[in-house]
Amino acid sequence: MKHDPINDELIVKYLLGDLPDEKQAEVEDRAFKDEQYLRDILAAESDLIDEYVRGELSDSVRRQFESRFLASAERRRKVEFARALASVTPEFAVAAENIRPAIAPPPLRWPSTLADFLRGLTPAAKFSLAAAALLIVIGGSWLVAERLRLRSELSELHAEQQSRERQQQALQQQIAEEQARREDLSAQLQREREQRERSQQLVAELQRELEESATQPSQSAAVSLALWPGITRSGSARPKLVLPQAARRVRIQIGVEPEDEYQSFRAELRDARGDPIWTQDSLSARRVRAGRAVILNLPASALKAGEYELVLRGVTREGTTEDVGYHYFDVLKK
């Protein structure tokens, strides 16, 4: 496997805790996603421990190793294991050198050669070999457990990162909802402000009209008369319209039945002789407190003292007219 010197240097700095927090997080994220990168980290860690045990580290690196790397109990156990393995290995090498024969034996198959080799070992060499094998088995098991632990830690870090991302997304959504709520409230306040301004303008106009009507009462004086179905020609039952001298307009409210549905209405006012004195077309019925009525407006100067007949006709959709009602009233002058 080819090693990248820059990558190896970065991993060593990571193991010695000599990287900024950002870089530390990047290395851990990459190790979680890339299995080969995780193996590189474990290999670099083993090499760093071996160099420390053999005394091959520089003074500055050794100080960092002892102050930062050995802060973990698991790493301290790794160093102790490496020291024990290093102390056993030289004894095994010396024992193997002592039992080397002066004359090379003929080639044999490796099972028998291995058996002969083991039988030829001294008790001290056998003990050293057994200890080395035991350490290798223990070390292999420990490396597997350490790898699983690192995987678990990386998995927890990844889960924590995902949790932080979810919390950040929830916070951003909450901020967006709050912003939308503020915009809605602002729009509602703007509508209420515009409505209040329109109301103030309407109040001002009404106030102005009231002031004008107070200064010119004679020009705005009007009288009203209500005519409803059922009124006969009888003089005692006929309504009376009293016109003062200040009256300028007459408003006659002509009641209609609910079933009188027409496109429009036509009103014709006649005097006692039956001559028409006022006619108005295209009138419509509107709702009033007593029901439905057609409103007829005419100048007060058109009426003299006397008896009057008002004929109301309905105009159908086809344009024909139908009699709706005949109403009678008297006009009195003050």
Rank of each mutant, 00 (worst) to 15 (best):
D4V: 10
P5W: 05
I6C: 03
I6W: 04
N7P: 00
N7T: 11
D8Q: 14
Y14S: 12
Y14N: 10
Y14H: 11
D18A: 15
D18Y: 02
L19S: 09
Q24D: 08
Q24E: 10
E28I: 04
R30A: 07
F32D: 03
F32S: 12
D34S: 12
D40I: 12
D40L: 08
I41W: 01
D47Q: 11
E51I: 00
V53P: 01
R54D: 14
E56C: 04
V61W: 11
R62K: 15
F65P: 06
F69L: 07
A71P: 04
A73G: 07
E74Y: 06
E74S: 06
A86M: 04
S87R: 11
V88M: 06
T89H: 04
P90Q: 03
A95C: 02
A96E: 12
A96N: 07
A96F: 08
I99V: 10
R109S: 07
T113P: 01
A115H: 02
L118G: 01
G120E: 01
P123K: 10
F127D: 05
A130W: 02
L135W: 08
I138T: 03
E146G: 11
R147W: 09
L148M: 05
L148P: 00
R149C: 04
L150H: 09
L150E: 14
R151L: 14
R151S: 08
S152N: 12
L154V: 13
S155F: 08
E156H: 13
H158Q: 15
A159T: 11
E160Q: 15
Q162H: 06
S163I: 01
Q169Y: 00
L171V: 06
Q173D: 13
A176T: 14
E177S: 11
E178A: 15
E178W: 03
Q179M: 12
R182Y: 06
R182S: 08
A187W: 14
A187F: 04
R196L: 07
E197F: 01
L202I: 09
V203R: 15
E211I: 03
A214L: 08
T215S: 05
S220I: 11
A222L: 15
A222G: 11
A222P: 05
V223E: 13
A226Y: 10
L227V: 10
W228R: 13
R233Y: 08
P239H: 06
P239E: 14
L241S: 14
P244K: 14
A246L: 15
R249P: 00
R249I: 09
R249G: 06
R251G: 00
I252E: 05
V256S: 05
P258E: 15
P258Q: 09
P258L: 09
E259G: 04
E259M: 07
E261N: 06
E261W: 00
E261H: 13
Y262T: 05
R266A: 02
A267D: 02
E268V: 13
R270I: 03
P276Q: 13
W278V: 10
W278I: 07
R286G: 13
R287P: 03
V288P: 00
R292G: 03
R292W: 09
L296K: 05
A300F: 02
A300R: 05
S301W: 05
A302I: 10
A302Y: 05
K304C: 04
V311Y: 01
L312N: 00
V315W: 00
T316Y: 02
R317G: 01
T320A: 04
T321N: 01
E322W: 02
V324Q: 07
G325K: 00
Y326V: 08
H327D: 03
D330N: 09
V331L: 10
L332I: 12
K334G: 11
